[in-house]
Nucleic acid binder design. Structure first.
Length: 803
RNA sequence: GCCCGAGUGGCGGAAUGGUAUACGCGCACGACUUAAAAUCGUGUCUCGAAAGGGAUGUGGGUUCAAAUCCCACCUCGGGCACCA
């Protein structure tokens, strides 16, 4: 046989697959179950990098296996084209974001095609296409109609470099996720989605999906459920009161002061009572000027101001305690006010020590302890609750509060509503109109999409308004209700809105090219959704994955879909580092270029090496020499074809062959691609030793290799005279009878140490095994004249003699 | 600080209570070659002449038996971070 010319062969098969449309999925195929296999779509950054390959290639191995296992597989691909990353990159190069994005999509599409993955290009979507964002806008309107989208003026995270507000999830350590500029608080009118309404469902339903445990835990922590109590502290000599939230009611007899967050509106309402109001407002202004990061950095040095002349009453013992404002209390969590218990809370303890406030013990750990004790214990100095254990006390005291109508037991979440306005150009316009007469008016469905105009001035501005605010043509519009002059909303949507529903879009794409109404698609939704397998990076744990779940739950409540969770199974790929073990970056010069590798080795070798180089979810540094091993392996397989002869009696191969079928099938199902390949290598090494190969066995190995090296496998398959693609043939099944062994090696241990090994028949009984064992010279030598105390026998595996 | 995950040859890694180091890379030697590359073969944890001993981050524990389970600690990676 000729040497393996990957360039020619890969090109040939990519063209043939395209021509025969074998990966174009139909919504319904008789006798086949649908399988929706999804990878996280890339944003058009410019080039496909090795990380994309590491996501897409092994995922494609999985999809191809499913296809051969008889599923009607849909594996679509598209581009997350709107958003900050693309826009920032374009601005840096002085190119219009639209031109930049679509140029990149073109390059990346051809790079993607060179991978030879089984994408259904008929279903390609681009989120910045008007036909796509027409639906993004429609989704916004649905949320608005159901009161899940609302507008509000409040402090928001403002990135001074990107000139836009950001969602809570996009602020990392007080810095902008994208440009790492320090985020400041700014009061701006903005649109939010009420994701908090679904906090409970998002938390509960996460246990129903097959996702990595770590990802589930991270989402749970992000949602951050706390059970506690809401308690009313009356303010002496006034009609006002302070609601505090605490998870530790049991410590309330140790409360020695109350703290309001600087943002708390009650402070203004109490202005007349506060004797040092000037001092207080000065403190509040200072606090507002601090960024989240600065507030966090000052963690250890807590500051605050006492509200002179204001006292709050502890409902449990009717004692008056002073009230402070301090920025260690957060305005956006709980009620923005806390009861301070310095004896049992670290933060209150620090604050109390600094301002020399009373520290009063109310829970005891049973041992003499330092002043600070933060764990559960037994209540002391707590009136009629004294002597109760903390846990019991929380229940009893909660009930007492409810009875006296001074508070109630309640649940709070860390999750905050999703801020979706962006003061940026490259995003979907928000389909809202402001009419001086009618107020907020939605754009009628028939007028969608609100087109994003191609403006010259797309640069973001410091003023807190989108560049669209300068486009008169865009802003000025007639009110759809009263026909009077009105103005459009000029902010665009967070790009994560676009990606929150894209898994629906691929299904819709297969039908009528995004025409309204939604009812057109609901039959297809039923056929394909939810997504069976979703593969992508772990970095989206609290962004995309949480938002998509929220969208799905909302759409289910609106009656448009009939499932609660969008992604039934989820797998993450690890991160590939540079050969130096550092994160790949152009400035470090440790970037691995997949195009170069494909040029030198071919797509099959690259994808297979990616599968082999590490445990999939682990990733790790790129080993530049390791790829040679896979190249040799595929060449070995190619040469094996020369050994195929008709009518060869197979000797000894059946056993290892069927074991390999079992192992490869199971490993692919479990995303253990590396061990699947190693067992294929063992099989091929065995086959090489044979003088000749039977066609039947040869076919089996081609099948097993096909998902990993699809081009090579097709070529070998065709050379056997097959007209149809190997991917339209059936995945081999192992015969459990053929992997039953007749003989096994029984390990002999003496006192737990391996001393001997010998072959026995499968199913040998303990008695017989023991007799045979004790007869062996090696064993006799070790036992000597000592008595056998005990024998442990593990059938078909091991016998351990204890002396 | 809190919550996860990981630590095994020169390297990537395998083994999730029962033969530690599969498979691959690298390296060494040999074959083929005028030569080199490619290819093929043999070897490759460590101490020891051998018998045998030792080794899965460190220290302890459970067990007939531990890389695997438990406890403490160290190192690295990821996430959260004044969330009351």
């Amino acid at each position: 046989m000729k040497s393996y010319n990957f360039k020619k062969i890969e090109k040939k098969w990519q063209e043939k697959w395209k021509k025969d449309k074998i990966y174009n999925s139909k919504d319904f195929v008789r006798g086949k179950k649908n399988f929706y296999h999804l990878v996280m779509f890339p944003y058009p950054s410019g080039d496909l990098h090795i990380g994309h390959w590491y996501n897409f290639a092994p995922a494609d191995v999985y999809a191809r296996t499913k296809m051969m296992q008889g599923f009607n597989v849909m594996s679509p691909m598209g581009f997350d084209a709107f958003g900050l990353p693309a826009e920032n990159a374009a601005i840096k190069r002085g190119i219009h974001p639209k031109d930049w994005t679509y140029k990149n999509i073109e390059t990346m599409t051809s790079q993607l095609k060179s991978m030879g993955n089984m994408y259904d290009w008929n279903r390609k979507i681009i989120t910045s296409d008007p036909e796509y964002y027409k639906w993004t806008q429609w989704m916004f309107l649905q949320l608005y109609k159901h009161e899940l989208a609302y507008k509000k003026k409040a402090a928001a995270n403002w990135c001074p470099k990107c000139h836009t507000v950001l969602a809570n999830e996009q602020v990392v350590n007080g810095k902008c996720e994208r440009c790492e500029a320090e985020v400041v608080q700014r009061n701006i009118e903005q649109w939010l989605f009420k994701i908090t309404k679904y906090a409970d469902k998002l938390l509960k339903d996460i246990d129903k999906v097959d996702w990595p445990e770590k990802t589930k835990i991270m989402q749970k922590n992000w949602i951050g459920r706390s059970e506690g109590a809401l308690i009313k502290f009356k303010i002496s000599n006034s009609q006002f009161s302070i609601d505090v939230f605490t998870t530790r009611v049991d410590t309330i007899f140790g409360c020695t002061y109350v703290v309001l967050a600087p943002e708390h509106e009650l402070i203004r309402q109490l202005a007349e009572k506060i004797e040092n109001y000037n001092e207080v407002t000065k403190y509040i202004d200072d606090a507002k000027r601090k960024s989240e990061l600065q507030r966090a950095e000052l963690e250890k040095d807590k500051t605050g101001v006492k509200l002179e002349g204001v006292m709050a009453v502890n409902p449990f013992d009717n004692e008056e305690v002073p009230v402070f404002t301090a920025d260690y209390v957060l305005g956006h969590y709980g009620t923005g006010a806390v009861m301070a218990v310095p004896a049992h809370d670290e933060r209150d303890f620090e604050f109390a020590r600094k301002y020399d406030l009373k520290i009063k013990q109310s829970v005891s750990g049973g041992k003499p302890e330092d002043k600070l004790f933060t764990e559960d214990g037994i209540l002391v100095n707590s009136g009629k609750f004294t002597g109760l254990l903390s846990e019991k006390a929380r229940k009893e005291m909660g009930k007492w509060l409810e009875k006296k109508k001074l508070g109630k037991r309640t649940v709070k979440y860390k999750l905050r509503d999703w801020l979706v306005s962006r003061q940026r150009y490259w995003g979907s316009p928000i389909p809202i109109i402001y009419c001086p007469k009618c107020g907020i008016v939605t754009v009628p469905e028939k007028d969608l999409p609100v087109l994003l105009p191609k403006v010259k001035n797309y640069l973001p501005t410091e003023e807190g308004k989108s560049p669209l605010a300068h486009s008169k043509n865009f802003i000025n519009i007639k009110c759809p209700k009263c026909n009077g002059p009105a103005e459009r909303e000029t902010d665009t949507m967070d790009t994560f809105v676009c990606s929150s529903w894209y898994y629906l879009a691929y299904v819709m794409r297969g039908i009528s090219n995004f025409q309204f109404p939604i009812s057109k698609y609901q039959k297809a939704f039923k056929r394909w959704l939810p997504v069976n397998m979703y593969v992508g990076g772990a970095e989206h744990t609290v962004l995309h994955l949480l938002y998509s779940r929220f969208f799905t739950k909302a759409l289910k409540d609106f009656g448009y879909v009939d499932f609660k969770e969008p992604f039934m199974s989820l797998r993450h790929q690890g991160i590939i580092l540079g050969p130096d073990g550092q994160k790949m970056s152009k400035s470090r010069g440790n970037v691995i270029d997949p195009d170069e590798l494909v040029k030198n080795f071919g797509a099959d070798v690259v994808r297979m090496y990616l599968c082999f180089m590490a445990e999939y979810s682990q990733g790790g540094p790129w080993n530049p020499t390791g790829i040679m091993g896979i190249k040799r392996f595929l060449e070995k397989v190619w040469k094996l074809a020369d050994k195929v002869k008709p009518n060869v009696p197979h000797k000894g191969l059946t056993f290892v062959l069927h074991k390999t079928i079992k192992k490869v099938t199971e490993d692919i199902e479990n995303f253990k691609f590396n061990t699947a390949i190693s067992s294929l290598m063992i099989l091929v090494n065995e086959m090489e030793k044979q003088p000749a190969l039977e066609v039947k066995n040869w076919k089996l190995i081609i099948h097993l290799i096909a998902p990993f090296a699809p081009h090579l496998a097709e070529e070998l398959w065709q050379s056997l005279g097959h007209k149809k693609s190997i991917f339209l043939s059936t995945w081999p099944k192992y015969d459990s009878k053929k992997i039953k062994e007749e003989k096994v090696k029984l390990v002999i241990q003496i006192n737990g140490k391996m001393r001997d090994i010998f072959e026995v028949s499968v199913g040998i009984k303990e008695k017989e095994a023991k007799v045979l064992t004790l007869k062996r010279e090696n064993v006799k030598k070790w036992i000597g004249n000592k008595a056998v105390k005990k024998t442990i026998f593990i059938p078909n595996k091991l016998i351990n003699i204890v002396i």
